[in-house]
Amino acid sequence: MTSMKQPLTLAFILYKYFPFGGLQRDFLRIAKCCQQLGHSITVYTMEWKGKIPEGFEIKTNYPKTITAPTRNNQFHNWVKEQLELNPADLVVGFNKMPGLDVYYAADTCFEHKARNLRSSWYTWTRRYRHFSQNEKAVFGKDVDTVSLLISANEKVNFQQHYKTPDERLHLLPPGISRDRRRPADAESIRQNFRKEFDVKDNQNLVLMVGSGFKTKGVDRALQAIKGLPAEQRKSTRLFIIGQDDPRQFKVQAKTLGITEQVSFFSGRDDIPRFLVGADLLMHPAYNENTGTVLLEALVAGLPVLCTDVCGYAHYITDAQAGDVVPSPFMQEDLNKRLSTMLASDQKQQWQDNALAFADTADIYSLPERAAEIIEQVGLKKTGTQQQERETL
């Protein structure tokens, strides 16, 4: 990916970077694509954990405060001061905040959740006012921020609450990393993986992947394992991977009497091995803008069971590569669907369908398309500024 246009100085802003978050992975891939187009990258963040990419300038400031609103506001003020000292051609944010030229909408519509999924008193809190104001600073009809969306459902929600013009909203295709594609030696990897983790041939391995255990529905998954028929439960294991504190869920597993069936892992960079080694991905999320892991499982040939609130759930239906739990969610429904899928003789057909879909669908080009739009917005902005200077 190369560009013959003038290089831009790009400021990327996100609250925190760590290697295993979905937002963070998208940020890094988009920023690298922008760098490949010839643009310079400076990152402003509260904290950076992990390797610094070559050519990136990282600036950090973590306010020493207790509450998130105060911390965020102090961080915003610091970024504003930094940009006054070192102006950028374009400011690209991955969290909602004032002063952005482009926003990557990894999060769902806050106002929609606050109005529909929270108690009425919530809108009187300081926390609500903070996040509502920040969202309005991005999507309000009287601002100029261009937003990169990854969920058609969320576009509807944003426009319902803010009347954001269509020309400021760009819907991106998914951006599944090609290293998630099922490799030619998948069977060998699968055998070695299951031997390493002592998963027997007659056992079903259910996988969950994602930071934010509460939102991803780990409690629902544990209930579903408990809800399996006794013999099926004995032959089923659940691996849960994510950068989160598992303590309350370990207590829940112990209370349910399924500790022996459940293993927790912190975030890791060998997820493709788990996708090949497992028999089913379960993702019973409460709320999920997209659910990138659904497509990562799909391209690895792993059948999926997820809730319909996931923005990417329709891909599982389109590919005929698993099952989707409809809303309103009922635990007993998830339990039955899990049991049915584990006992089904359609596993090979689901895998074949998934791999065929992975060969034909555009589910990989998100970072490239995002970088193209960022470049277009940046060149338009700098061109306009140049014209204004010449006029003066």
Rank of each mutant, 00 (worst) to 15 (best):
D359P: 00
E81W: 07
K381H: 07
A11M: 11
G50F: 02
S263H: 00
I363H: 04
A137W: 06
F265S: 03
K16V: 15
W78N: 12
D270L: 07
T391K: 14
D270P: 00
G93I: 04
D279I: 04
P19A: 03
F20P: 05
K32G: 12
S151V: 09
R118A: 04
I176K: 14
Y128A: 12
T236K: 04
A152G: 04
K380P: 05
A186W: 11
K32V: 13
Y315S: 11
N95G: 08
V156R: 03
F265H: 02
T255H: 14
F357E: 03
R190M: 11
C109R: 00
I374V: 15
A319K: 03
H314F: 11
Y62V: 12
V324S: 02
Y103M: 15
N335S: 05
P272W: 03
Q385T: 11
M330N: 08
A105Y: 07
T307M: 09
S211H: 12
T292K: 08
P229A: 14
E296C: 10
E81R: 13
Q82F: 05
G38C: 00
I241S: 12
A370W: 14
F139N: 01
R180W: 13
S263W: 01
F139Q: 02
G257D: 08
V138T: 07
L172S: 13
D144V: 08
D323E: 14
H76M: 10
T65C: 12
E231D: 15
P69Q: 08
L305N: 01
V325H: 00
E288P: 02
L207T: 07
F357Y: 09
L334C: 02
Q376M: 06
P87I: 05
F239I: 07
D308F: 08
F265K: 01
A105H: 11
Q191F: 12
Q349Y: 04
D359V: 01
R25V: 06
G140P: 00
L256K: 09
F329P: 00
T70Y: 05
R115N: 11
Q386A: 15
Y315D: 14
D101L: 05
V138A: 14
D279P: 04
A137S: 09
A68W: 09
S151C: 13
V79Q: 05
K141G: 02
H39W: 07
Y128H: 14
H161R: 11
D26S: 15
K226I: 05
K226M: 11
P87T: 01
P98K: 04
F193K: 12
K49S: 12
V377W: 05
T290V: 15
R389W: 03
F274M: 05
F27Y: 04
S3F: 02
I225Q: 10
D270S: 07
Q160M: 14
A343F: 00
N77I: 07
A371F: 09
A371L: 12
V92N: 04
V102S: 12
V309G: 07
R389M: 03
D333G: 10
A230T: 15
V43W: 06
Y17V: 02
M97Y: 00
E260K: 11
R127A: 13
K59I: 13
K5C: 03
G242T: 13
F274W: 13
Y62I: 13
A253Y: 06
Q74C: 04
G93T: 09
I176Y: 06
R168Y: 12
L148K: 06
P87D: 04
G257V: 01
T9G: 10
K347R: 10
N116R: 09
L83T: 00
D308H: 10
A152Y: 01
Q261N: 09
F94E: 00
G99M: 09
G140W: 00
K380A: 15
